[in-house]
């Protein structure tokens, strides 16, 4: 069963209602060939469980790590990924695109 972005947001609500810490990551901009469209969501809980996708698997690991910090600190942050990025050797998009991901805590 494929997970739709709306289902991901429904899960965010029910996870929070169940008392879990939750962060929501959203693709807000893409340049060139990007794996997931603007508006795609990844929902992450305090334990590192996640649902949805912002890149089809390329940068999810990094987003989950950042989400843990957003949950701890509370302030939203903007992440950028792409081959031109200095982090490209670590995580990046093999398709050559760039994406901007907004990560916020659900409070």
């Amino acid at each position: 069963m494929l997970t739709r972005d709306e289902d991901v947001l429904a899960a965010a609500e029910s996870w929070r209602e169940a008392g879990r810490d939750v962060a929501i990551a959203t693709v807000v901009e893409t340049w060139g060939s990007a794996p997931r469209p603007v508006g795609s969501h990844l929902v992450i809980d305090g334990e590192g469980n996640f649902l949805g996708s912002v890149s089809g698997g390329c940068v999810e690991g990094a987003v989950v790590e950042e989400a843990a910090e957003v949950i701890a600190e509370g302030a939203p942050r903007m992440l950028e990924f792409g081959v031109a990025d200095e982090t490209a050797w670590r995580v990046g998009l093999s398709c050559g695109g760039r994406i901007k991901v907004y990560v916020e805590k659900l409070a």
Partner: peptide, 14 residues
């Protein structure tokens, strides 16, 4: 994201 905002969105969807 505020939980009340997310709830408004999810109930509109429902």
């Amino acid at each position: 994201m505020r939980l009340d905002v997310l709830k408004a969105m999810n109930s509109a969807r429902a």
